[in-house]
Design a protein around this nucleic acid. Structure first.
Lengths: 229, 229
DNA sequence: CCAAAAGTGTTCGCGGTACACCCATGC
DNA sequence: GCATGGGTGTACCGCGAACACTTTTGG
């Protein structure tokens, strides 16, 4: 038997919502489409899945090829299947979201795109296909996840100040947090290690830098510890 | 243009983990395969997606056709894409999980299955394909979700006793709960309405029955209320 | 009257929250 | 010396946790 199923098949794609964080905003990486449909419109990086790769691999490949993004935290989000989400034909897309350290990425445009850019989440251009919905879903997931899993660190450099970390939570959760309470809580979890470095190039007192102790977190996880912000 | 993409395509399927709850156990609905591969093995209900239906529709249709299950809470879980998860050819499957009221369902077997049955989650037979992994993932999701969303009620009859509800949480979370604390907490949320009915046919004091006030829950949600068990 | 489960309150300790001032540094 | 953000402690309150006995009902 060569085919389990001989009916016409939908095409299968992946699309990625790559988040990045700067001083003030959560940003999303978009590419500008070179070809129809939605020619010249901004869209999520993504493309069709090949027969010899898993979905995770397809997502990573597309990020690399289309945006020059590599080595990011990547997680499957949801599979979108509305009947006419692609005007050409039936295309079902498995959406992923990724967390990138903005500073890391010399993002670049690829051959089948016009450009690549970071856009503030609350000021996105009009997007191709159902990509706006996908971004909304990704944001919801990130908001939920950041509270009980240590994913926020993926958006920060390896060494960061407590103020940076607090701002991360404030931006993602959309709430203000009390500085003293935040520090007490975060430090009491005992998952941050104080380094001997301080912030550079600021014109006020430099903040101490910390790093996240992933090993310790994994150890605590196995003992039933549950992170919660 | 008829095709966005002319390369060979993976087949796309859906598979459903249907949970049900009895006095003592969380159960999963399985069907016995009539045809190869994995002939006679137990498997999740599921099948290939048609071009004219969304994934949600495909999942509902398969549940109806293969197991006679209708009108259940259904939620997309994860898309599985390991290269040789199906020995015939490349098949990617979108997994769903469903919550059914055990009493409701006169489950029945369909023409391309040998039988249908409920199996205790911690005593499953060997399953076809990667279905065991899918079940594990579904269970994790249910455990997580039940604590901050009112999905447990989907497993209970419309009117239930507090003891039934407590047992539900104990079974899903795998922990014992204190009766007095549980009642205090649940009732303080003010989401259960006391009915004037009591349990029938027990040979001890009959428990009062409650129902979940979904309207009120939706109203509170909009006001920023967050359920938490 | 006996077995079985329903139903009910109080105490204690911890963790969340509210809140304001001094300190270090660069310019 | 001034502007800017870094860094710190305490008091209060509410919620979760621990814990045992009486009541109701059917058989």
């Amino acid at each position: 038997m060569t085919h389990a199923y001989e009916y016409p098949r939908a095409a299968l794609a992946v699309d990625c919502v790559v988040f990045g964080l700067d001083e003030a905003d959560l940003k999303v990486l978009l590419i500008q489409r070179k070809l129809p449909p939605y020619q010249h419109a901004w869209a999520l990086p993504g493309g069709f899945v090949r027969l010899d790769e898993t979905l995770d691999e397809a997502a990573q490949r597309e990020l690399r090829e289309e945006a020059g993004v590599d080595d990011v935290y990547l997680e499957q989000l949801y599979t979108f299947s509305a009947l006419s989400r692609d005007p050409r034909e039936r295309v079902i897309t498995v959406a992923y979201y990724a967390l990138a350290k903005l500073s890391d990425h010399r993002i670049r445009s690829a051959t089948d795109t016009l450009g690549v850019g970071w856009f503030a989440l609350d000021d996105l251009p009009k997007l191709a296909f159902d990509h706006e919905q996908i971004v909304i879903r990704a944001h919801e997931r990130l908001r939920g996840k950041v509270r009980y899993a240590p994913v926020g660190f993926e958006l920060l450099p390896p060494r960061f100040s407590l103020t940076q970390l607090q701002r991360l939570y404030e931006i993602i959760l959309g709430t203000e947090l009390d500085k003293r309470n935040f520090r007490k809580k975060i430090l009491s979890m005992d998952l941050l290690v104080e380094t001997d470095e301080v912030e550079q190039g600021v014109r006020h007192r430099a903040a101490r830098l910390y790093r996240f102790d992933r090993r310790k977190y994994e150890r605590l996880l196995k003992q039933g510890f549950e992170l919660s912000i």
